[in-house]
Design a protein around this nucleic acid. Structure first.
Length: 271
DNA sequence: TCACCATGTGGAC
DNA sequence: TCCACCTGGTGAT
């Protein structure tokens, strides 16, 4: 389920429910039994997100690294802790409630040095105050790879996924197939600034809304796609429907094994 | 009940 | 470029 905004919300939720207090940890499914035993009883000292990675720090300097992949979920609940159902890789519980982790791509304990290696290979995260978009521009401006592919490369920008990728390119009127080095620095600045705004709103609301007020359905006579989580989008998974802005048919193509969506009218190919 | 899809990543070729 | 990984939801059978 996750693009970066989800992970930042999850970090905040872990701080709120577990922060500063001892946490009980177990692995009902069994696949993280040894790691859970190491965490069990320790105090959660920090929880933060970097891109799509969640880092939970415990008071013994060990860091739990979780990456949800496509399938992973965290589900929070109250007390008393219910019987686990399904494949719960890790269950955390404390005085403030409990959380169940299912289907993660990664769930592992890291040393500080390993955390640094992980973070160092990520590009700037639009949701982090310490992000330097210039680092991404240095990669993009030298690349022949399409901007659509670059925006999905977490070593270029950390946090955006397939929805934000499609939506930000639509909002900026940029052809997804444009090579990175054909972008102007102004276009990149506009993409970055838009990601900062959109993703911060995603953290606040818990859903991905990208449709501007002036393009809302009442004004256009066309409906944005409301995704499974309630977000309103311009092009993501709207292939074959009319563009909310110009009425062109939204296109889709497979790019690097992911579905790309764009409006050929609003995002014309250069040249 | 089954097949397929999904906001992702990393390794093998 | 292909594939394995992992789980849940949805729509077809």
């Amino acid at each position: 389920m996750p693009e970066g905004h989800t992970l930042h919300r999850l970090a905040a939720e872990h701080r709120r429910v577990f922060g500063g207090r001892p946490v009980a940890a177990e692995s009902p499914q069994g696949r993280f039994a040894a790691g859970a035993a190491e965490i069990d009883g320790r105090v959660l000292s920090a929880a933060e997100a970097y891109g799509k990675h969640l880092l939970l720090e415990f008071d013994d300097d060990r860091v739990l690294h979780v990456h949800l992949g496509i399938y992973g979920t965290w589900r929070f609940g109250g007390l008393p802790v219910p019987e686990p159902w399904g494949a719960v890789r890790l269950r955390l519980s404390g005085a403030g409630g409990h959380a169940d982790l299912r289907g993660p791509n990664a769930c592992e304990l890291l040393e500080r040095g390993e955390v640094k290696l992980l973070v160092d290979r990520l590009g700037p995260d639009p949701l982090r105050a310490d992000a330097d978009p210039g680092r991404a521009w240095a990669r993009i401006s030298r690349s022949r790879t399409s901007i659509a592919a670059l925006l999905m490369d977490q070593s270029v920008v950390a946090g955006p996924g397939n929805i934000y990728r499609a939506e930000v390119l639509f909002r900026q009127g940029i052809d997804p197939m444009l090579p990175g080095r054909a972008l102007s620095e102004g276009q990149w600045s506009a993409i970055w600034a838009d990601l900062v705004v959109l993703m911060a709103e995603g953290v606040r609301s818990g859903r991905i809304d990208t449709v501007r007020p002036e393009h809302m359905p009442e004004a256009m006579g066309r409906a944005p796609r409301v995704d499974d989580h309630g977000g309103e989008v311009y092009v993501y998974r709207r292939a074959g429907s009319a563009c909310l802005v110009c009425g062109s048919v939204v296109a889709s193509a497979e790019l690097a094994a992911r579905n790309l969506f764009w409006c050929p009218g609003c995002q014309p190919a250069a040249g």
